[in-house]
């Protein structure tokens, strides 16, 4: 019976099987770490925020300003400042980012692309403290100061423009991906009907890619809401801020309020729940960005499913 191939010979050597199994478990373990991180993240936010939610006099969350050291936690102040900053940021990043995306996707020669894309990626890599410095020392005096002479040295407007610059590459790259995903057939069909390039771009490609473009705006909004250092440095406020709805005054966004409260110490002294308010704001921020990201994800998936 020599020379006959048995079942044993065809089976993988036990050593290799064991190796395979170990590798699988190890890799599964690394994948599960991200789940553990999420659980710990939510737990750590809740652990301290819960004390705030239970212990707070809710009237103090709707007062004339965010003065956490004095027991006044007007969330509205932070919300409005966050809205203003994010709105200005998107007013800057939306048009510029979208224009860049359409140009790169529809017009640019491959040579131009090879030059422009890396430049945008470099802009994306600029750390936010750098934008903060730039917003405080350049945007505020040279741009905002000229628009409104009464604007304070650091202002929500200056910070908003800074955050906007930071999010241009994000809008541009996600939108461009969406437009690139639109099949060539559609463009060719448009051209076959005699449409000009501008018409194909704006009436064919743009509507076809709209889900992705919307997604890019949502992702960028989420990023702008979460951006901290630009507002911390150039937003014109400190640990606390009075309610304002003027972009030309200084105020605190949710993120800047957190960073300034924790500056230099984790032993924050104040009226009892000052330290916990840090985690409460963090929880709100987490919830808002989480929802925005989920919505954006859905839009992106729609693009992927369609093409």
């Amino acid at each position: 019976m020599s020379g006959t191939v048995t079942i044993e010979d065809l089976q993988t050597a036990p050593r290799r099987v064991r190796k395979e199994r170990n590798a699988k478990f190890l890799l599964l373990f690394t994948a599960l770490i991200s789940v553990v991180i999420s659980i710990v993240l939510v737990f750590s936010l809740f652990s301290e925020a819960w004390d705030f939610i239970v212990g707070i006099d809710w009237a103090s969350t709707w007062s004339e300003g965010w003065y956490p050291r004095r027991g006044l936690y007007d969330v509205k102040t932070l919300f409005v400042a966050t809205l203003i900053t994010t709105g200005i940021a998107m007013a800057v990043a939306g048009p510029i980012g979208l224009a860049a995306a359409i140009y790169l996707s529809e017009y640019a020669s491959s040579r131009t692309r090879a030059f422009i894309k890396p430049v945008l990626e470099i802009l994306a890599g600029v750390p936010s403290v750098v934008l903060g410095f730039f917003a405080l020392f350049f945007i505020a005096p040279e741009i905002i100061g000229r628009l409104n002479e009464d604007a304070s040295a650091g202002s929500l407007a200056a910070a908003g423009v800074g955050v906007g610059l930071l999010t241009i590459p994000l809008v541009a790259s996600v939108s461009e991906d969406a437009m690139k995903a639109v099949p060539l057939d559609l463009r060719e069909a448009g051209a076959g009907l005699g449409a000009r390039k501008s018409v194909i771009s704006s009436r064919v490609v743009f509507p076809a890619a709209i889900s992705g473009i919307v997604a890019s705006f949502i992702v960028a909004t989420s990023r702008a809401i979460g951006e901290t250092m630009v507002v911390f440095i150039a937003g014109g406020a400190a640990d606390s801020a009075g309610y304002t709805h003027s972009a030309f005054e200084g105020s605190l966004t949710m993120t800047a309020a957190m960073a300034s409260l924790a500056s230099g110490t984790d032993q924050v002294k104040g009226e009892g729940l000052t330290f916990q308010s840090l985690f409460f704001v963090g929880l709100l921020l987490f919830a808002i960005t989480f929802m925005l990201n989920m919505v954006a994800d859905r839009f992106v998936r729609r693009v992927q499913e369609r093409y």
């Binding site: 040295a153 014109g236 400190a238 500056s263 230099g264």
Partner: peptide, 21 residues
Amino acid sequence: RPDYVSSGDDNVILTGIQGSD
């Protein structure tokens, strides 16, 4: 009064005063 811009960092306070006429 509670409603003014406050900071534990004196540098930040100075920047604020410099920023408004």
